[in-house]
Design a protein around this nucleic acid. Structure first.
Lengths: 191, 191
DNA sequence: GTCTATAAGTAGATAGAC
DNA sequence: GTCTATCTACTTATAGAC
């Protein structure tokens, strides 16, 4: 039993922070080694390549989201949406981290195919779930319209957090959320 | 007189393409040298540091936008907006480049302060202009409301292009534009 | 699992000849 | 202005001892 219960998880935690702060091509094994307190060769033991780190990060990000979304089934739809957007609000307030999937999407053309696939998978999950919530709130919409609204809503969240960070203005995220809720048909249940 | 009229401009052209495709930390002087056909030391002659390349790119991007916007004064507002979004539509269709300013915003925390300042300046220009157009279309809005709508509209454009590229789905940009126009109060003058 | 040691390649950048 | 040559530092990654 180590002082760190799970070193692999510890590495991923720091890698997530570095990725969301700087981007995939702006942190190194050295950065990870310094923060975790192990040597870079030990990082390679847990994750043979840097792409493996990225893949583990986005897979865990998607699995965490999937579990969270499943746990929301018993809540009203507007409460579910509030839980969905909560991490975006927190990031906007903390001020220097973007969404993990958004950051990988921005680095898309420098990623290996498997990593690209996992990024697409994350957004597929988020957008399909958002489309389902939209249909629940606005049953009069066609499934296609609900999907289109969900995709624009997701784009709005990513863009708002990107610009809130650059402009150091968390209010932008709150303003975007008003539009986000309106687009999906939720009453202004602002957090 | 060289075969290349303006080498500095030639370097910036290739740098813009590399930046918008891969991101600021995913291209090197070597990449630039290969594409321009000069040695990397010559790149350094024109731009002493890589940050200088970034600064020249975003400054030119902003100046080009400022000139374009000024040239639109005699057009109906909906036509001005169509010109504003045209580069986003083109990027979505070409499929592998993001917005230059959006990419630098994603790399924000790995940039020097002067480069960060120029990124903020670009978005200030774009958003102020969009707010002005919104007020022209919807005079009943308060300046604050117009500003909020303009900021969300800009976030939507950036996010939509980001996800259109990752999902290889140019239709997302067109769908986002419908919302973009509605938000600013323009009739559905879709391109 | 973690370490030391090391590798081959790349990064941004500079000196000085032409 | 562009070149060759070079530099230091950093990158990802591996071999092998403990």
């Amino acid at each position: 039993m180590n002082s760190v219960i799970d070193r692999r998880q510890d590495i991923l935690q720091h890698a997530s922070s570095l990725l969301r702060t700087r981007g995939f091509n702006a942190f190194s094994h050295r950065d990870l080694a310094e923060r975790t307190g192990v040597k870079s060769s030990s990082i390679h033991y847990h994750f043979p390549t840097k792409q493996d780190v990225g893949i583990a990060l986005i897979q865990q990000y998607r699995e965490d989201l999937a579990m969270t979304l499943q746990s929301l089934n018993n809540l009203p739809v507007s409460d579910r949406l509030a839980c969905f957007v909560a991490p975006f609000v927190e990031s906007a307030q903390s001020g220097n981290q973007w969404c993990l999937a958004g950051m990988l999407a921005s680095d898309f053309n420098s990623l290996d195919e498997l990593l690209r696939y996992e990024v697409r998978r994350f957004f597929d999950l988020a957008e399909h779930w958002l489309a389902d919530q939209t249909l629940a709130l606005q049953p009069e919409l066609s499934p296609d319209d609900a999907r289109v609204r969900a995709q624009s809503a997701m784009a709005l969240l990513e863009g708002a957090l990107l610009l809130a960070r650059a402009q150091q203005d968390a209010q932008r995220m709150h303003n975007a959320l008003t539009l986000f809720y309106a687009l999906l048909g939720a009453s202004p249940a602002k957090a």
